[in-house]
């Protein structure tokens, strides 16, 4: 088996002593191990090497200080690592959770600008809401309902997160706070004549399913990356935008609804949901969770930056899919089968 397990700075977790017959002994809390120098290595060199394994020297340092070649040093260190007698004295290479999330936010921010806000859905909603068919607004509500209805599929997958008791508890709190949010939005569809039963028969757009399933997969296979996406999913776009009556609209979509005078019976339940999320400060969930992530290695961070692109692509397609489908008033609001 190729050896990949040499510590950067080997630290022998045993006291080196010399036995009655001059043999080298390793004293550990579990007992005494008698050890022999490898073939070709003198006892003095062997003992000196063992005593230098104090967690402050690299393998190169050890070679230099003992005059032994690297192979000889490894011949001593490797078996001791396999026995569990050697720790690494070097500080492990990792960044703090919040620093890693901050850098990921930078990648996400740029992608959100490039793909989401510059995409057709948000451009139209923000710049020319009057020109849009009303079904686009209703469709946004419906596809959001599908997302909320299935949110348990991804949120539940991180409820048993094993590595951190505190994160696990916070994720369970978040799950509870999100539970039945689909019911808040449901009331918005009354003026459309759409009931809960109708919704249960209907299926979301493929772009909505794509986002839901991708998140559900990440929640199961890369839970911390999923946790990092919550801040975007729960974040409000332009949260300070004012409605026509001077009240806080809660997000850009609601501001646009207000601007075109959409039926309050549709708009207000949507606003109620935005208000609940704002009350729980759900836009900060990723940050609050990552504040409890002690460290992340560089390779994991690199992988998350790559995946962030896929995530924002799916997120942008979720919005743009709504515009594409619901712009055509000949298409039904709900897509249902016969059963």
């Amino acid at each position: 088996m190729p050896v990949n397990f040499l510590p950067v700075k080997p630290f022998l977790r045993a006291t080196v002593r010399i036995g009655e017959k001059g043999e080298a002994e390793l004293h550990t809390p579990g007992g005494v191990l008698e050890v022999e120098a490898p073939e070709g290595m003198g006892q003095r060199d062997f003992l000196r090497l063992l005593r230098l394994l104090d967690g402050s020297r690299t393998i190169d340092d050890l070679e230099r200080e003992t005059g032994l070649d690297g192979e000889a040093v490894r011949e001593v260190v490797e078996p001791a690592v396999v026995w569990g007698l050697v720790d690494d004295g070097a500080v492990p290479a990792a960044s703090s959770g919040p620093a890693v999330l901050s850098r990921l936010e930078d990648v996400l921010n740029r992608l959100l600008e490039d793909l989401v806000f510059a995409g057709p859905f948000w451009r139209e909603v923000l710049e020319r809401p009057e020109a849009l068919h009303r079904n686009v607004f209703f469709g946004f509500g419906l596809e959001n309902w599908f997302f909320l209805f299935r949110e348990n599929e991804f949120d539940s997958a991180v409820l048993a997160l094993a590595e951190s008791a505190e994160l696990r508890a916070m994720l369970n709190d978040f799950y509870q706070e999100e539970h039945r949010h689909d019911d808040i939005v449901l009331r918005a569809f009354q003026p459309l004549g759409v009931t809960r039963d109708d919704l249960l028969r209907a299926r979301p757009l493929p772009t909505t399913t794509a986002l839901i399933k991708t998140l559900s997969w990440w929640a199961r296979t890369d839970p911390l990356f999923f946790v990092a996406t919550i801040g975007v999913l729960e974040g409000r776009l332009d949260s300070d935008s004012d409605g026509p009556d001077g009240r806080i609209a809660y997000d850009s979509f609601l501001a646009a609804c207000d601007r075109i005078g959409l039926d309050p019976a549709f708009v207000e339940p949507m606003r109620a949901h935005a208000r609940v999320n704002a009350g729980h400060d759900h836009g900060s969930v990723s940050r609050e969770l990552f504040a409890r992530v002690p460290g992340v290695d560089a390779e994991t961070e690199r992988r998350w930056h790559d995946k962030a692109h896929l995530f924002v692509e799916a997120y942008a397609a979720f919005f743009n899919g709504i515009l594409e489908h619901y712009s055509d008033p000949r298409r039904p609001l709900l897509r249902t089968g016969d059963l």
């Binding site: 397990f5 040499l6 510590p7 950067v8 690592v81 050697v86 720790d87 690494d88 070097a90 492990p92 290479a93 990792a94 960044s95 703090s96 620093a99 002690p294 460290g295 992340v296």
Partner: peptide, 11 residues
């Protein structure tokens, strides 16, 4: 930037 505590996989 500094991670909290922790150790390498070898340790």
């Amino acid at each position: 930037e500094a991670a909290e505590g922790g150790m390498s996989g070898v340790s």
